[in-house]
Every structure is written in C-alpha cells, then in structure tokens.
Design a protein around this nucleic acid. Sequence first.
DNA 1: GCACTAATAT
DNA 2: GATATTAGTG
Length: 303
Amino acid sequence: MRESEDGNWFSKWEEEFLRPDELMPLTQTLITPDLAIAFDIRSPLTSNNNPSVSPPPLQNPASNHLPAAVASPHPGSAEFTDSGELGGGTGTGEEPARTLKRPRLVWTPQLHKRFVDAVAHLGIKNAVPKTIMQLMSVDGLTRENVASHLQKYRLYLKRMQGLSGGGGGGAVGAAAAAAASDPATEHLFASSPVPPHFLRPNADHFLPFVPVPAHHHHHHQQMAAAAAAAAYHRPVGHFGSPPNGQFEHPFLTRQAQQHVHRVGPQLHSHGPLQPYAEDLESPVNNANGGGRKVLTLFPTGKD
DNA sequence: GCACTAATAT
DNA sequence: GATATTAGTG
C-alpha cells in the first residue's frame, strides 16, 4: 500500500504541476544577448535571431514570450546595474561582450519543483549539482545555480529531520508542521512535497500522504519577484507581456542536443525521469479558461 | 583540473 | 532571506 501511496503522491504531484507553460524559453533571458550571439544561440520559439541591440520589445503580441523570472533591477529606482554600472569603474564605453553578468535566478515554485523532482529521481547519493542540473534540463541553468539551491535545500531537509525526529509526525507532517508553525519555513520549500525517502534514510515507516496544507497565507517574494519581473521586465530585455496577463517563468527545457549520460552506477528506484518535456500536453491552462485549476502556486487571493 | 561542499558576500 | 561567489577539499 505504501507503494501506491508513493506513486500516488507523485502522480498527483506531477499531474498538477507539470504544465507546458512552465517550460518557457529562457534562452534569451538568462543568457545575455552578447553571450547568445557569441554562441550563436537562438531561441527555439523564435525564428528571429537578430543580434541587433534593439530587439523589438513588443513586436509579437501573440507570442509566448513570457516575462523572465529573472530579477530585474529596480523598476522605479534609477539604478541600472545591468549596464555594467557597478562601482563606476566600468564607465561608458566598456565592452559588454565579456564581463556580462547573468541576472539573478529566481527559483519559482515550478523550477523548484523540477529541482526536487530531479533530486528525488536521483536519490540523495547521486544528487549533486551537476547531475541535478543535467536532469533538470533547464536551459540556462548553471551548476552554480543548482549548487547554491541545493545547499539551501539540504539545510531545509536537515531542519525537517530535526523536527520530525522528536515530533512524531513524520517528514511530510514535519513539513506541514514547520510550515504551519514556523513562518520562516513556509516559503519556497514548502511548496513542493519532499520525497519520503529523503527524510528517512533508514526508517521503515512511511508517512501518509499529507500534502502541505494550502497555507498560502502570505504570498511573498517568490511571487512578488515573478510578478515584478513580469510587470516591469527591463534588464536588457525584450519580450513583452502576454495579452493574457499571464506570466510564468521563462525556462525552457533544454533542447535534445544535450545528452544526459548516466553518471551514477544505478539511479534510484524511480522511473527514468525522462527529460521533462514529454509530459507537457495540457493545452488548456489559460488564465480564465476555467477548465483546469490554474495552478495554485500563485495564489490569486482565494482561500 | 574538475566537481562538491561549506562559508561568505552581495 | 534568497542567490551568487569564493575558498577549501577530495
């Protein structure tokens, strides 16, 4: 029975979270124009690869170009750090082609979900930055990105182990409890179920499927950041806001060009964790279509 | 030299 | 607090 539960939570999990719009192109958002040019990278969704410095921001109203989940400089403030205006040393006339910095990566719940998914399929042992990154197959995602996130994720797991150890609730229960009692724990990590085997490396007992209660009380930075990026994308930007008013993060599953070779001797007992992008077949999803649950990661205010 | 982790910086 | 970057280590 326990197995079915496992399969159950996972299935439901993926069913509700994996949608095509989650995998949007990020090629041109994380990768700076110069880099893209240098590497001759083109967006798969756009036939336009104009290296010009003035890409039409709103040229395609019907385009799927969704705003970046990339933190943009202050919208209202007059601080443009993207122009290489840091410290003043790099005055005008700098060569932007080389020393460009990627925008800060924002780990949206969707992205984090993918992360957890990858880690779950790999097992704790093989879950190292490089492997995770490869399995995630997210365009533009770097090993450093994953490493940094992984570090924090491990801390989170550790916290939960500590809580579950004496609480008697269990991993998921601990997550719920933590989320419920610890306001500080409520944020990103609580948005994705933690694979049971993570928190009980040697325990025989499992935990009932207790999805973290939809305590989406406070929507915070995660959403705020995404919304902000959506509202006023302005880094080096292009892409305009979709007419739907819908925004998602612009990550795109990497093209099949990158082969994920098996790094570990044997992976976990899970499925092959196929290169995400196969399951995305949910045409319905628009904001007010009403057909499907419009994702609960961005609490619009209900509940 | 590469990759991982922990620590530290932004 | 969230990410990025650096430093130490295998």
